[in-house]
Write a protein that binds this DNA or RNA. Structure first.
Lengths: 116, 116
DNA sequence: TAAATAGTTGAACAGTTGTTCAATTGAATA
DNA sequence: TATTCAATTGAACAACTGTTCAACTATTTA
């Protein structure tokens, strides 16, 4: 008979809702994570952390076709995660923001710890 | 005539490759990010950071059907991000690991900074 | 200017994902 | 025990995603 769960109480739910970040921020967050959530893109980002590279170099490093890499670079560029600078025939890509790399490091460390 | 890009040099590529994390880790990382890359799951995680809740409570908080929430809870449970404890008719869910929450906070802060 | 090289782009396709709906399970209560 | 409530599960379906292929653009070199 006793109500254990407070979830029937609308005020309780409203209280939790109020403490959540606003919807726009949550959408932005999940969009950002979505970008990291693909192996090819993640490998491109990690590769670019090591070296600035042209598309062909990235393609060889991550073992993906030139076209596939170029498509993903566009996604990363649109998300302002990488930038390209043209030099002659090549376009050299690098990370926009080293800052974003803390995210990847944090995830990496978490998983490493989880492993042993 | 001068070769500007070092990407034609196989040793250069091999060098970058060697400095990358191994494939398994990259797959684990992208799998983790994939989970955060969905708005419903992200909202569930953020809600559970605030309060332990039963499925109906979560469902009301994130404005999704009971079934949709339950399906996503299974994904989160399989990934060891949340755990459930049964108490009577209800199952109460909470975060497995507050540690993982640093990731979300890092992303949130990054986006907040980017905004203004 | 013509050819070659580096990269981009759009359409198409297969594979994956998330939600809904209906059926089902598990626990408490009448 | 039969009923009710809370949650889970599986199938189906639509929407989305990532790769490939072919065509195209931009820059350099012959």
């Amino acid at each position: 008979m006793t109500k254990i769960c407070d979830c029937g109480n609308d005020e309780f739910i409203a209280g939790v809702k109020k403490r959540m970040p606003d919807d726009d921020l949550i959408i932005d967050m999940s969009d950002l994570f979505k970008i990291f959530g693909d192996g090819t893109r993640l490998r491109i980002l990690i590769a670019l952390e090591k070296e600035e590279m042209c598309v062909e170099g990235i393609s060889k490093t991550v073992d993906m076709s030139l076209s596939a890499v170029s498509h993903q670079l566009k996604v990363l560029k649109d998300a302002k995660l990488v930038k390209g600078r043209r030099s002659g025939k090549q376009v050299y890509y690098s990370l926009c923001d080293e800052h974003i790399f803390m995210l990847l490091k944090t995830a990496e460390e978490h998983l490493r710890e989880e492993r042993e």
